[in-house]
Amino acid sequence: MAAIDHYLNSVIQQARLEAFDDGSATLEAHHLLLGIAVVGENAELIAAGLGYDQIRAALQEEFEHSLQTVGVSAAAYHLPKPTRVGDPPTTLGASAKLAFDRAFAWARRKKDLRPVHLLLGILQAEIGTVPRALALAGFDRPALLARFSGEPA
């Protein structure tokens, strides 16, 4: 198995755990982003201020902010956390599929695929949870894209 396959497999395995913890039936782009932050090849992410804890905080803020726009407070509910047992989800959700499609488009050929391409595929989304979370947390997504791609914004 090529190094990139090992890397993607590790990211997906971590993303499955993130989705499972989230109670999500599918792996979404933000789970992949958390997976990247855990698995490695993440020194540049951390240097950009996007460590695991920062990403989690940004995602939680986006969730709470989105609920607040319709007058709902996630903190208003105090039910115990449900027990999570069984197997983490394996199905890729729409946002994760798009992230992979865009990652492969960055690489042009599969053998050219590198870890950064998945990150770029995630950051390329202009709509959805990840870009909203990054914007709310004060990150300049186009600047991050430029930084990680090595191409001017």
């Binding site: 989230d22 986006e62 726009t69 319709v70 709902v72």
Partner: peptide, 13 residues
């Protein structure tokens, strides 16, 4: 965008 994000967040909640 806010309304659609609210729908996604409400489903998750």
């Amino acid at each position: 965008a806010d309304a659609l994000a609210a729908v996604a967040a409400l489903r998750r909640l």
